[in-house]
Design a protein around this nucleic acid. Structure first.
Lengths: 335, 335
DNA sequence: TTGAAAGCGCTAACAT
DNA sequence: ATGTTAGCGCTTTCAA
């Protein structure tokens, strides 16, 4: 920067202003400095800027894994939204392990990230305390705290997985099924859906067979567990798969076994991934707007970080800091 | 840090050493400092550290989109590998747009990232120059430069997409098909495969019908274009889909149309995603070890950044800086 | 084994 | 509209 200043015959601050607040610099001076910047190929050091302003323009997100369309679409939208606000995204993967999540948070705090996006709302107490005292904008995503549970840490975007599970059961019960299967990964959100699913089934005196797969749940596991379930309990007539990919695996397995879908076995998926609509028969599923979770999370953060916002806007954002994006039951041919 | 130093009765440097090179500090001092660190909940500011050392411990990666299993699995492995070496990953999405890619590179250069991972090896000349003069470790991934094309910028991990396309055609031709279909997104890697595919077909006097979908290619587009192709050219007996998801869409469409797979239409996929093996019939496909691309890219960077490496190791890494991970034709029931 | 001094490259606050 | 001064929080000499 001092090279540029010298060559342009101005001081350091002027160069700084040309880069950050060009409108504050006289057009002639600005043009001269910009010419030197271009000629020298000068790239401002954002690290130094961050140190001076104590704002990194970096946001971190922690997801269980990025190799799952469910999360990657959220991250895609988040990256996009943040980029529009001039922020970059640092990604961390917890692998569904709480210890890894805590370690990642620690690293990100060290980087002085401007905000943090977490997956889920069931952080261990120690981590909750840590985040509180860090006074860092935090958005919890994907689940929303259930009444009576731990409150929102700061901001949250998601929906009630318990309600989604209940809606899934409601649909299948409405179709006359009395023995339901539940196939999902053994992780937070899936268990919440199971909770709602079981409660709704129990309320109508129906039974639920459960298969929780070790995360990350694979399609092969799903197909195998399905066959086991049906073999052991031939009365099983409907299964709720906690992810459309698992549902697709189950659908193919039925094709292989010669089981008619939905007559022999009804299949309900989750997520409404592209495959759901195109499958034969098309999959009934619970639609969740994954991208919107990322977009809203990004917007909440940007608002908090004072993008085009005065105090009033900040206050507004604060009131709306718990966003329920809901879910939608999409009934197609598989149920 | 000065709070810690004062409380522990030592100087700043000592605290710094306890954090970065604890073995250089006397055990008693070390323990005392660590106790204060814990008590105060001190988190070292990595931004300040980066400024002082001019090493950010951040690597950036640019992919077309993260919401595609093809790339997200690479990113997953890369994140993992880098994390083991104490580096974090900043992600950027180009959306298949060269201008966005260049803008992202500029931002990342400003962050003084320690390394950069790019998708593809067909960067525009201006960007190539920029990267050269930045003297930044760069890994190009997914394609490897073809002989006669632009050389590797610095390091590369990938395979020959042209050869993969040729292998795909070779397989279908060997099955006796004379009129082949090609279904893929209109983007670099897909076009390279098309190139190899067409060349191999032409060499045996076979014809190729091409459908290039605007990226990101959707399953719905694929199903629709397939029907168009088959309707117009009933002699079409085999189609190479440039992604197993597109192949799955095509497979379902055949089921819907009542076209037997592989007898009426043979389907060859690309990638060997989990769905390929479980589909009915299981999809023949071209297997690419997506995770390994990320792992190897991460290893190349860490080696270059001097992890456990002396000059000799650095030299070794330099010689092996073009890694061909190959591909593998997996023949299953769909061809 | 520990410490003092001098930056890293930038920006905030206050001049002018 | 532009400049001066004083840091941001750490690490790197070099010295003790």
């Amino acid at each position: 920067m001092s090279d540029v200043a010298r060559e342009a015959g101005v001081s350091l601050v002027t160069v700084s202003r040309v880069i950050n607040t060009p409108e504050q610099v006289a057009p002639a001076t600005r043009a001269a400095v910009q010419a030197v910047v271009a000629r020298l190929g000068y790239v401002p050091n954002l690290t130094a800027g961050s140190l001076a302003t104590s704002r990194s323009r970096i946001v971190a997100a922690i997801v269980p894994t990025i190799a799952n369309l469910v999360f990657s679409e959220t991250i895609e939208a988040l990256t996009q939204t943040l980029a529009e606000g001039g922020h970059q995204l640092l990604v961390g993967q917890s692998g569904y392990r709480a210890a890894d999540e805590a370690a990642l948070v620690e690293t990100f705090l060290g980087r002085r990230v401007d905000g943090l996006v977490l997956t889920g709302c069931h952080q261990p107490p120690a981590l909750r305390v840590r985040l509180r005292q860090a006074e860092l904008p935090v958005v919890q995503t994907w689940d929303l705290p259930e009444p009576g549970g731990a409150p929102v840490l700061d901001m949250a975007v998601g929906f009630s997985n318990v309600a989604a599970g209940a809606a899934a059961a409601g649909h299948l019960l409405g179709r006359g099924h009395r023995l339901l299967g539940f196939l999902g990964a053994d992780e937070d959100r899936s268990r919440l859906r199971l909770q709602g699913f079981q409660a709704a089934a129990a309320a109508q005196g129906a039974e639920v067979l459960t298969a929780l797969l070790r995360p990350p749940a694979t399609m092969a596991q799903a197909a195998q567990r399905l066959v086991e379930m049906v073999t052991r309990q031939p009365a099983l007539s409907a299964v709720f798969c906690n992810n459309d990919l698992l549902a697709t695996a189950v659908l193919f397995e039925c094709l292989r076994q010669g089981w008619d879908v939905p007559r022999r076995l009804a299949i309900l998926g989750f997520g409404d991934l592209p495959v759901a609509e195109l499958a034969v028969p098309p999959l009934s599923t619970v639609r969740v707007r994954r991208g919107e979770i990322g977009t809203r999370a990004g917007q909440l953060l940007l608002a908090r970080l004072g993008h085009g916002g005065d105090a009033a806007t900040g206050a507004l954002a604060a009131t709306a800091s718990r966003v329920d994006i809901g879910f939608e039951l999409v009934v197609r041919g598989s149920t």
